[in-house]
Amino acid sequence: MHMADALVAPAVAGTMYVCSAAAMTYSIKKVHLEVDTKKIPVMGVMGAFVFAAQMINFTIPGTGSSGHLCGGMMLSAILGPFAGFLTMIGVLLVQCLLFADGGLLALGANIWNMAFYGCFIGGMVIWRMIMKNGMSKKKIMAASVLGCILTLQLGAFSVTLETLASGITELPFAVFAGTMQPIHLAIGLVEGLITSAVLCFIYDARPELLWMYQKKERGKLSYKGTVGALACAALAVGGLLSLAASSNPDGLEWSMEKVSGTTELSASGTIHQAAQKIQELTAFLPDYSFKGSEGAVGTSVSGIVGAVIVAALCIVICICIRNIRKKKVK
């Protein structure tokens, strides 16, 4: 659901940057108060896992479309909504700047559509409500599926509102929304099943890693073993499984093609051109491949390098927040 710059007018892009920045600032304040040393490596590893998982587009049968994980619901169920939101920002920032996945001008909108709803509606509302009186596998599955479906519906609808506000006449609101919502319903269902599988694994392995887990029982694996398993999974997904990703257009591109006849729209203007030039300078592996090549090696390298960079970025962010907290305490 990564929006390209051509889908947003500068005024809309600026508005979404402000909204996302406000949510980010509040999240930093909250994480600053609750940061736990044990969360730091988990934040990095799960950021890497979501980055890698987003590289795998799964086919939606009978549609010619595909979808990929957003990850906000998963991250908030593990890290809590605030740390989860900051981790999602790290993922989307790396995707945008280093891999040209999603427009730089549209980054604020992408953060809102893919991270805000997943973390604050999926995590803070749905996960919190369902886990209020205790946690179980059935509750995890219910929260995951319900949360992913609802938050992807909200994200997809926000995309249509943003294109409407941007005056994208090639995508009439009613028709575009009528195409976006059903396909993202299917994508949300698949993401919910994937999310529940990952969270159920953590529940068995080390349940205290899940946000709002209240018991003192320990799982089957050690803390290091669980984090290590997730780290290995992130590298395997990014380096190997990403090669099996569907070549079908994702839900947004598929909807655009159905409505306008093309998966890409063009945009002119100084601001759009400036954003494009910045991305051309920063993206050393555009579209998750070496420049001028679409080979499998480039995809694998992108998956591994991107996962490592996201993990490092998330850990650095968390450490910086923790150090600021220590200085204020002194």
Results as ranks from 00 to 15, higher is better:
61 P>Q: 00
74 M>L: 15
26 Y>P: 07
74 M>Q: 02
68 H>W: 09
81 P>Q: 02
51 F>E: 00
29 K>P: 00
89 I>M: 15
87 T>G: 11
69 L>T: 11
105 L>Y: 04
92 L>S: 12
55 M>D: 00
52 A>M: 05
41 P>F: 08
104 L>D: 01
20 S>M: 08
112 W>R: 01
99 F>S: 04
74 M>G: 09
38 K>V: 12
110 N>Q: 04
23 A>D: 02
81 P>R: 05
101 D>I: 12
79 L>H: 06
98 L>I: 09
23 A>V: 13
97 L>K: 12
80 G>K: 09
22 A>H: 09
39 K>W: 06
66 S>H: 10
106 A>G: 07
114 M>I: 10
88 M>G: 11
98 L>P: 06
44 G>P: 12
25 T>S: 13
45 V>D: 06
71 G>K: 07
88 M>S: 11
89 I>S: 03
31 V>Y: 04
72 G>N: 01
55 M>I: 04
25 T>G: 11
48 A>S: 13
51 F>R: 10
103 G>S: 06
71 G>D: 03
96 C>E: 00
26 Y>L: 14
84 G>C: 09
64 G>R: 13
21 A>P: 10
36 D>Y: 08
63 T>R: 11
60 I>E: 05
24 M>Q: 07
78 I>P: 07
76 S>T: 13
102 G>E: 05
70 C>R: 11
115 A>H: 00
55 M>K: 08
36 D>P: 11
61 P>S: 02
60 I>T: 08
67 G>Q: 02
96 C>A: 14
95 Q>K: 11
40 I>C: 13
71 G>F: 07
50 V>N: 10
20 S>L: 06
19 C>A: 15
97 L>D: 05
106 A>Q: 09
100 A>F: 12
68 H>M: 07
56 I>G: 01
27 S>K: 08
19 C>S: 12
49 F>N: 00
42 V>Y: 03
50 V>F: 07
78 I>A: 01
38 K>P: 09
110 N>V: 05
60 I>V: 15
74 M>K: 01
111 I>M: 13
87 T>A: 12
108 G>Y: 06
93 L>A: 14
50 V>L: 10
64 G>S: 08
69 L>K: 01
55 M>Y: 07
82 F>H: 14
83 A>T: 07
57 N>G: 10
74 M>P: 01
103 G>M: 04
74 M>D: 00
22 A>M: 15
46 M>I: 09
65 S>V: 13
57 N>D: 01
87 T>W: 03
19 C>G: 03
111 I>F: 09
85 F>V: 04
56 I>V: 15
85 F>N: 05
23 A>T: 07
60 I>N: 06
36 D>I: 13
105 L>E: 02
49 F>H: 03
29 K>Q: 13
91 V>P: 04
86 L>F: 07
95 Q>M: 13
79 L>I: 02
100 A>C: 10
109 A>W: 00
25 T>F: 11
45 V>K: 09
20 S>V: 02
20 S>D: 00
95 Q>L: 12
